[in-house]
Design a protein around this nucleic acid. Structure first.
Lengths: 158, 158
DNA sequence: CTCCCTGCAAAGACTTTGCATGACG
DNA sequence: CGTCATGCAAAGTCTTTGCAGGGAG
C-alpha cells in the first residue's frame, strides 16, 4: 500500500502539487475502501475518523484533483451523487460495473470486455475512443437465488 | 409523429395516468428534439415557447413519469445535469453514446454492440442483465480532422 | 364530489467558491 | 515573503416537495 501512496505522491509532484496530510488521509481512505464506491460525503466521514479537523470542501477539492490526475474515476450511478473509484494498479481502462436493481450492490469487472466493440466504433464511426463507461443494470447472483427461494416458498404454501 | 403520441397516451392510460396538455407539450418537445440530449431546463424552455404557463416542476414531474414508463431514459454525462433521451420506436435496449471530449458533441449508436458482452457477463458473472449504459469518451470525426488541419498548418509555418 | 394534476414558492441535496488563516520552502 | 492549501461559511446548482387552486370525469 505504501508504494501506491508513493506513486501518487510522485504524480502530484510532477504537476507541482503537494501531498498534504489531508490529501494523504483521503488517499488512504480510498485505498482502504477500494471495493466500495464512496461518495464525497462517505470519504469525508471516513477521513474524519483519522483527521477530525478536515473540512468537506477539502475532500471535494482533493477528489477533484485526483480525478484530474486519473488516480480516481468519478462515476455516477444515477442517484444524485458522484462516487469516486480508485483506478487499479496499472489499469488504464476504466473498469465496468454491475449494478443490482434489487439490492443496489455494485460489482466490478476488471477485465476489459470492450476491446472488440471499440475497434468497431473506431472503424465504423470514425470515433477515436479514449475511455469508456459501461454499467449493466440487472439482478445479481444473490438476488437471483433469493427470488428462486421466494418462489419455491410460495410453491410450498399451496 | 402523431401515432407515437397516441402510443404514449395509451401507455399512460394503462397505468391510469392522463396525457394532460402540459404532458403532451413536453412529449412533443422531446419528439421534435430526438437527436439532442436535453436537460430538464432545456425541455422547460422549449415547452415554454408553446405553453408559457407551464412550470419547471411539472416538467420534472413529467420527465420522471416518462422515465418510469420507459418512454425516456435518464442519462448523465458527468456534468451535473440529468438529460432525457427518448427511446426509439420499438427499441428495448438503451442506445450507446459517443461523447467528444473536444467539442462536447454527442452521437448515438442505435445498433446493439453489447450482445456478446452481455452473454459473457451472464455466464461468467452470473449476473442477469436487464439494461446497460455504455458511453465512449474520445474524439469525434470532426475534431480529428481539425487536429490534422491544425498540425499541418503548424507544419506550414516552419 | 373526488381524484389527479398543476404552478408557485420554498425547501432540500450536493457541490463549489470566497476569504482569511496557516503551512512550507 | 510568496505561493499553494485549508477550514469555514456562504453561495450556487439542480431537483424535489408542500400546498392551495383547477380541471376532468
Amino acid at each position: 500500500m505504501e508504494h501506491r501512496i508513493e506513486k501518487i505522491k510522485k504524480q502530484l509532484h510532477s504537476q507541482s502539487y503537494k501531498l498534504t496530510p489531508q490529501r494523504e488521509a483521503t488517499v488512504r481512505v480510498l485505498l482502504e475502501n477500494e471495493e466500495d464506491h464512496l461518495s464525497a460525503e462517505d470519504v469525508y466521514l471516513l477521513v474524519k475518523e483519522k483527521a477530525p479537523e478536515i473540512g468537506l470542501a477539502t475532500v471535494y477539492r482533493t477528489l477533484e484533483l485526483l480525478s484530474e490526475l486519473k488516480v480516481v474515476d468519478k462515476i455516477n450511478f444515477g442517484d444524485g451523487v458522484s462516487r469516486y473509484d480508485l483506478r487499479k494498479e496499472g489499469a488504464e481502462h476504466f473498469h465496468h460495473h454491475l449494478v443490482c436493481i434489487e439490492c443496489g450492490s455494485v460489482e466490478e469487472i476488471e477485465e476489459d470486455l470492450l476491446l472488440d466493440v471499440e475497434k468497431i466504433v473506431e472503424s465504423q464511426w470514425g470515433f477515436e475512443v479514449k475511455d469508456h463507461r459501461l454499467t449493466f443494470h440487472g439482478i445479481c447472483r444473490v438476488c437471483q437465488k433469493q427470488a428462486v427461494a421466494a418462489s419455491s416458498a410460495e410453491e410450498n404454501k399451496k
